[in-house]
Structures are given as structure tokens and as C-alpha cells.
Design a protein around this nucleic acid. Structure first.
Lengths: 116, 116
DNA sequence: TGTCAATATTGATATCTGTCTATTCTCGAA
DNA sequence: TTCGAGAATAGACAGATATCAATATTGACA
């Protein structure tokens, strides 16, 4: 009776030396999308937008305490990832939550939870 | 009739100059937890664990193609963030999905979606 | 057309992080 | 108790990124 056999008998664990199932999936893409949301500043931006509806970029400078180029940089990342919508009104840029995009970003985590 | 007035009349957007609602929330902590999951290698680890149940760390080296210390480093991050469980059996270390922990990591995104 | 304001882009820099090699730690077994 | 194997830690280094200052772009309006 080897240690591995004991493991198999006593638990539902794969014994050492197992060839594991490796699910298909674009982890690089999923990670890249999650990275956009996994940032203090961008999370704050998203929550401000969610709480206020459509928000002018110009009004984010005060609550965030960051420079205009930095905020523009974050908003671009959020937009490129599909987390927010963007609408230009004259010289102003309005951003809103993109629920569909956020759901896609969130999908890998939801899938992990549904398979466990 | 200013441009701002037009905005208010035609849309539900905050006019430029608005003092925005800034929701409370520990964005730094949320971001730190999400960062752990927002990584190609760690996502792959999580999906392998989810597909195989309890997995020995020693069996991850082959499918990941990374060194043992690197994998140990990633597993520690996942464990510290509460994404996985850890059980030592002799010299082997077994890791499993921690559904509660993953749900907590996921919570900020779920909240964003529920408020929009 | 010319000017001003809001936004976007560029370039530079400091910090963070994923990876490796080398080493140490922790068990089980002889 | 000693040896060997798996896991964890430490230290180093390359690549990524958040930030800012400076500049360019775009659109409204006189």
C-alpha cells in the first residue's frame, strides 16, 4: 500500500504524478481584461460612474486627485476593455457603465464558481 | 440656454462642474484581491484545479511549463487571497478551489453590475 | 478665422511584479 | 539519526505600468 493509494482511498485528490485535465480557454485575454478592472483608481472610477449615471471626465479630477492625462489614460483602458461607454458632447466626454462588457470581463470568475 | 442646460434637459447626464457622488468602499483591497486573479498563469492554475478537484502542486509543473518556485509563488498568492484551499499531506501540498473566497474577490464586480 | 477649454497623446521615470537560480525548510523512510 | 524529495523562501533581474509634464488635437464660440 503506497502513500498514493492511501490518498486515493481517503480523499478525492489526484495522486502525485497524475496527468491533469487542462481546460481550454484564453487565459491571456481573460487576464488582460481582468487586469483593467483590478486597479484601485479604475475601480473607483467605475463605482463613481455607477453611482452617478453618465459622468463627465472633467468632474473626475477632483474626487480622484489625479492629473487630467492620468484620468484620460485610465478611461481609455476601461473603454478599450469594454467596461464603459463613451459619448462626446461638444468638448466634453461622458462615460457610462457598459454592463455587457463588465459581464464579459467577469465571466471567467463566474465560470470558476459554477464548476466548483 | 447654456450647453449644460441642454445636457440636463436632453440626457440624464451630470453636467460639467457637478460634485459627484463618491461611494464608500475599500478599492485598494478590492483591487489587490482582483489583481491576484487577473494573471494568465494564476487563471490557468485556478481552472486546472477546478477541473481536477484537489490537485498536488507537484503536478502543476508539467502543464504550466514553469519552475517549481514560480508555481509555489503563484499558489501562495492565490492562497493568501483566499482563492484556494491548501492541505499538506506528507511532503505533498494539495490545493483546492475556495468558492467563498472567490466569491468575495468577485463581489466588487457583481456589485457594479447590480447598481447599473 | 482665431482663441479658449476639454480631451487625448507622447515621452520620461519610478515602482511593481513575474520569473529564474540558489538556498532553506519540512517531512517520510531507511 | 541521516538521507532524499517536495515545497517554500530569498535575492536578482527584466518587462510591464501608473504617474506626471509637455504637447497635440478637437470642438465651441466670438
Amino acid at each position: 500500500m503506497t502513500v498514493c493509494d492511501n490518498l486515493l482511498a481517503e480523499t478525492n485528490a489526484c495522486p502525485p504524478g497524475s496527468v491533469l485535465i487542462v481546460p481550454e480557454g484564453d487565459d491571456a485575454r481573460s487576464a488582460a481584461l481582468l487586469k483593467v478592472v483590478a486597479d484601485t483608481t479604475r475601480l473607483k472610477i467605475l463605482r463613481i460612474i455607477a453611482a452617478n449615471g453618465s459622468v463627465c471626465a472633467c468632474d473626475l479630477e477632483a474626487p480622484l486627485g489625479l492629473s487630467q492625462p492620468t484620468i484620460s489614460h485610465h478611461l481609455r483602458q476601461l473603454f478599450d476593455a469594454g467596461a464603459v461607454t463613451k459619448e462626446k458632447r461638444g468638448t466634453w466626454a461622458y462615460y457610462g457603465i457598459n454592463a455587457d462588457g463588465l459581464q464579459e470581463i467577469n465571466a471567467p470568475l463566474v465560470k470558476l464558481l459554477s464548476h466548483s
